[in-house]
C-alpha cells in the first residue's frame, strides 16, 4: 500500500534535517503504529506524506500503490486515497461543516472520474455516519470545527475519513486532548473502517490508544529514523519503561 524508502526531509525555512532515512512498508489491511519521543519527526512524517508546504524532501521516496506521491499536490494525494487525521483540526469560520464535507467528497469523486453525489444522497449517507460518531445535526450545520470541543474536533476528523473512504489513513496523535469516553468513540469509528483493503498509520505517544485500536505492527521512531519495529508488545514495553532503554540500546 504505502511504501517509504530512505526518506530524508529538511525544513525549508531553516537548514534543519528532521527525517534522516525513514523506511516503512505498510501492507494493505494492516494497522501500523508509530511511537516515539517528542521531536522525533512523527508529525513531520505525516505532513510530508500529505503534502504540506514548508518541507523539502532531500532524498528517498514515498509511493502509494506504486504511485510516487511526493510530487503530487495535496488534493491529488487525497484523491489517490490518502487521508491525514490532523492532530489539531483547523477551524474554518463561515464554511458550514456539511458544505465542506460535500465539497470534499464531490471533488474527490470528480478527480477520480466518478459521478458527484446528489444533495439528497449525500445527506442520507452523512446522517447515518454522523450518528455512529454521535455527531448531531447542529454540529453538521456549524462552521467547520468552530467552537467544537477537542473531542468533537477529533470525531469530526473521523467523520471526514468515513465519508471520504480513503485507502491509506494516517492518524496524527488522534488521542491527544481526548477523555476516555471520547477516545472509545473515536476508536470505534476507526475500527469500523478497518478493512482488508485499507491501511492505517497511527501516530501516538501513548499505549492507551492502542488498547482500542489494536496495531499489527509497532514502530519506534527517534531522531528522524525508525529505530525498532515489532509487535504490539513493543508498545507495552515503551509504556512500562519509557524510551530511555530503547535509545540506549541504539547508542
Amino acid at each position: 500500500m504505502l511504501s517509504i524508502k530512505n526518506l530524508h526531509v529538511s525544513l525549508e525555512e531553516e537548514d534543519k534535517q528532521i527525517l534522516k532515512g525513514v523506511n516503512l512498508e505498510l501492507e494493505a489491511g494492516k494497522v501500523h503504529a508509530i511511537m516515539g519521543p517528542n521531536g522525533s519527526g512523527k508529525s513531520t512524517l505525516s505532513y510530508v506524506l500529505s503534502g504540506r508546504d514548508g518541507y523539502e524532501v532531500t532524498e528517498g521516496e514515498a509511493s502509494l500503490d506504486g504511485e510516487d506521491i511526493l510530487e503530487m499536490e495535496p488534493e491529488e494525494r487525497a484523491a489517490a486515497g490518502l487521508f491525514l487525521a490532523f492532530q489539531y483540526p483547523v477551524e474554518i469560520p463561515g464554511v458550514g461543516n456539511m458544505t465542506f464535507l460535500r465539497t470534499a467528497v464531490n471533488a474527490q469523486r470528480k478527480a477520480r472520474g466518478e459521478e458527484e453525489l446528489s444533495a439528497g444522497d449525500f445527506l442520507k449517507v452523512v446522517r447515518a455516519k454522523a450518528k455512529d460518531l454521535k455527531i448531531d445535526a447542529d454540529m453538521l450545520k456549524r462552521p467547520v470545527n468552530v467552537g467544537f470541543s477537542g473531542g468533537e474536533k477529533k470525531r469530526n476528523e473521523i467523520l471526514q475519513m468515513a465519508m471520504l473512504e480513503p485507502k491509506m489513513c494516517i492518524l496524527d496523535e488522534t488521542d491527544s486532548g481526548l477523555d476516555v469516553d471520547a477516545m472509545k468513540l473515536v476508536s470505534q469509528g476507526v475500527n469500523a473502517l478497518r478493512d482488508e483493503n485499507r491501511t492505517f498509520l497511527v501516530i501516538t505517544h501513548y499505549q492507551r490508544l492502542l488498547d482500542h485500536i489494536k496495531p499489527d505492527v509497532v514502530h519506534i521512531m527517534a531522531d528522524g529514523k525508525i529505530i525498532k519495529s515489532g509487535g504490539p508488545e513493543l508498545a507495552l514495553e515503551v509504556e512500562n519503561n519509557g524510551y530511555a532503554d530503547l535509545l540506549a540500546e541504539m547508542a
Binding site: 488534493e75 483540526p89 483547523v90 463561515g94 470534499a104 471533488a107
Partner: peptide, 29 residues
C-alpha cells in the same frame, strides 16, 4: 490562512475551490 488552505486541500478540495471557500468564509461576517 495557509493552515486552513492545506486542511481543505488535504481533503481533496482543489486549490482554486479552496481559495473560493476561504473567500466565502472571510465574507460571511
Amino acid at each position: 490562512d495557509e493552515a486552513a488552505l492545506f486542511y481543505l486541500r488535504s481533503r481533496g478540495v482543489p486549490h482554486a475551490e479552496a481559495i473560493n471557500l476561504l473567500t466565502l468564509s472571510f465574507l460571511a461576517e
